[in-house]
C-alpha cells in the first residue's frame, strides 16, 4: 500500500525530478567549467591559493539551486493535493493518516537527498584529482548549508501548501523564510562546521510540520 502511495507521488513529480536533476547537473557543470578555466588559463596553484586564502569555493553559483529544487519539488508534490481539496482522497485511504503523510514526505525528502548526494558525488569525483583532501572538504563543507536549505525549503513549502487557511499560510511562509535565512546568514567558508549536523537533524524534524497542517485540514479549520 505504501508502494502505491510512492507510485502516486512519483507520477506527480517525475518530470520535475528530472528537471531538478538537470538543473543541478547544469550548475555543477558550469562551476566545474570555471574551475577548469582557472587551471588551464592560470594554474592549479592559483586555484589552490584562492581556496586557501579566500572564502570562495568556485561553486557560489549553486548557492540557491538546492533551495530552488526543494521548493519546486514540494510545490509539484503538494499543490495537486490541495487543488479541489484532493487531499481528502488520500486521507480516505485505508491506512493510518500519519503513515500516509509520512510516506509522502519521506519520499520527497529521500528524492531530494538522492539528488544532493549524487551532486556531491559528482563534485567529489571532479575535485579529487585536482585538490588536496583539505580543500575538497573545505569546498564541500562550505556548500553543505545550501543543500540542507534545500530540504528546509521543501519542508516549509509542504507545510505551507498543506495548510488549509491563508492566514496561517502567511505565518508559515514567514517562519520558513526566517528559518531558511539561517543557512545563508554567514558567507564565510566552513562557518557552519560546528552546527551543520544539528541543523540537518532539526530540518529533517521540521519536515514533519506538515503533520500539523494535515491535522488542521482534517479538523476542517477555516
Amino acid at each position: 500500500m505504501i508502494k502505491a502511495i510512492l507510485y502516486k507521488e512519483w507520477i506527480k513529480i517525475r518530470y520535475l525530478f528530472l528537471l531538478a536533476a538537470v538543473i543541478l547537473m547544469a550548475f555543477t557543470a558550469y562551476c566545474q567549467l570555471r574551475i577548469g578555466n582557472v587551471i588551464s588559463l592560470r594554474s592549479a596553484a592559483h586555484l589552490w591559493e584562492i581556496l586557501l586564502t579566500r572564502d570562495n569555493t568556485f561553486y557560489e553559483a549553486m548557492r540557491y539551486v538546492p533551495l530552488f529544487s526543494g521548493v519546486l519539488l514540494a510545490l509539484f508534490q503538494f499543490v495537486p493535493e490541495m487543488q479541489q481539496k484532493r487531499l481528502k482522497l488520500c486521507l480516505h485511504l485505508p491506512l493510518p493518516q500519519n503513515k500516509i503523510i509520512g510516506s509522502m514526505l519521506g519520499f520527497g525528502v529521500s528524492l531530494l537527498i538522492i539528488l544532493f548526494v549524487v551532486t556531491y558525488l559528482i563534485i567529489f569525483l571532479y575535485l579529487n584529482p585536482i585538490l588536496a583532501p583539505e580543500l575538497i572538504s573545505r569546498v564541500m563543507l562550505t556548500m553543505l548549508p545550501w543543500f540542507v536549505a534545500g530540504i528546509a525549503g521543501y519542508a516549509f513549502v509542504a507545510f505551507t501548501v498543506l495548510e488549509p487557511t491563508w492566514k496561517r499560510r502567511l505565518l508559515n511562509i514567514l517562519a520558513g523564510v526566517a528559518f531558511i535565512r539561517i543557512f545563508y546568514l554567514s558567507g564565510y567558508a566552513e562557518a557552519y562546521n560546528q552546527v551543520i549536523v544539528w541543523l540537518l537533524i532539526i530540518t529533517l524534524a521540521l519536515a514533519g510540520l506538515s503533520f500539523l497542517s494535515v491535522s488542521r485540514f482534517k479538523d476542517g479549520v477555516q
Partner: peptide, 26 residues
Amino acid sequence: IALLIEGHVQYSFMNIEQIERFYASF
C-alpha cells in the same frame, strides 16, 4: 467505505490505468 468527493474529484494527473493500479492495492 467508498467515497465520491463533490465534483468527482480524482487524481487527475493519472490516466485510467494508473489510477486503477493505484487503488487496487488498497
